[in-house]
Design a protein around this nucleic acid. Sequence first.
DNA 1: GCGAGATCTTGACCGGTTCAAGATAACGGG
DNA 2: CCCGTTATCTTGAACCGGTCAAGATCTCGC
Lengths: 160, 160
Amino acid sequence: MPAHTEVARALRDAGLRVTQPRLAVLAAVHDHPHSDTEGLIVAARAELAGVSHQAVYDVLRALTDAGLVRRIQPPGSIARYEARVGDNHHHLVCRHCASIVDVDCAVGERPCLTASDDHGYVIDEAEVVYWGTCPACLAGSPPPSSSDTRSTHHPEGSEP
Amino acid sequence: MPAHTEVARALRDAGLRVTQPRLAVLAAVHDHPHSDTEGLIVAARAELAGVSHQAVYDVLRALTDAGLVRRIQPPGSIARYEARVGDNHHHLVCRHCASIVDVDCAVGERPCLTASDDHGYVIDEAEVVYWGTCPACLAGSPPPSSSDTRSTHHPEGSEP
DNA sequence: GCGAGATCTTGACCGGTTCAAGATAACGGG
DNA sequence: CCCGTTATCTTGAACCGGTCAAGATCTCGC
């Protein structure tokens, strides 16, 4: 988790004004990777009491547009954010508890960027989501209830 | 689009009761690949007037659970469904108009199924989403300005 | 320090999806 | 072929993540 000065610099470099809510939210995203918006609101308020949820939404959008954070949104789950950007990494999602971990692209570079048939589309990104079951859920413990992966509701067994 | 008898058989084989709403919805999914729920409701009502939207939601869930249809849900967009299941194909999504086309996996088999580090997860599926711009949007639509719809995806004119 | 304009607060609102209770009808057994 | 059981459908309303809008506040360049 970078110091405030560093976070502030990142904001300034991105052409964004440096405000308390932005510092708090950006720090929160760094501290809680893969958190949902709700969790980030809580985390941001821990540092800056009273930030409106609307401000958090606005800030997250601004940061996302600026490329400082990345929004990930596994189908069936709500929006989550992470501060790791710029590299070609993907995600591994547990079907049961919706926990997320980072994985680097399987083949090293970015092989999936070339589709077999582009249908005339101009492709600029290939996103990969690995679905599976995490070790905790494999062991039989239904709710891992980690601080980070606190998802409001589980994706009920839509597909085993 | 299969005949009704065929659709009915698919339902029965999946252990589901054969009902009018299910026949209508399943046929609708076959007829309108990549449609959203709203569109499927309309399509289903064209065949069976008066189906409740709730029935369509229930049926879609049942069909999805049974593996007869597949739900796809690009981040920032609403749920869509397709009847092509069982093969290893992926999707190409336009950032501007959210249109979707099918693409087969780039390398033929299923290379993306192996992550570089599985973190102890048991992976059962790798989903690939290609992002880009469709030919129509490339040609006709003059985007309002620079910032593309990356991440904060606006299906249509909700920009300033 | 000052002013213009971006950003935050407050509070209402929206659309997709789900929940709940009762009516209906599909299917297996008699 | 009829009946009872029970999954499924209808109706209607709630829910929830996220957005919109208006006005107050703060940042930053000058």
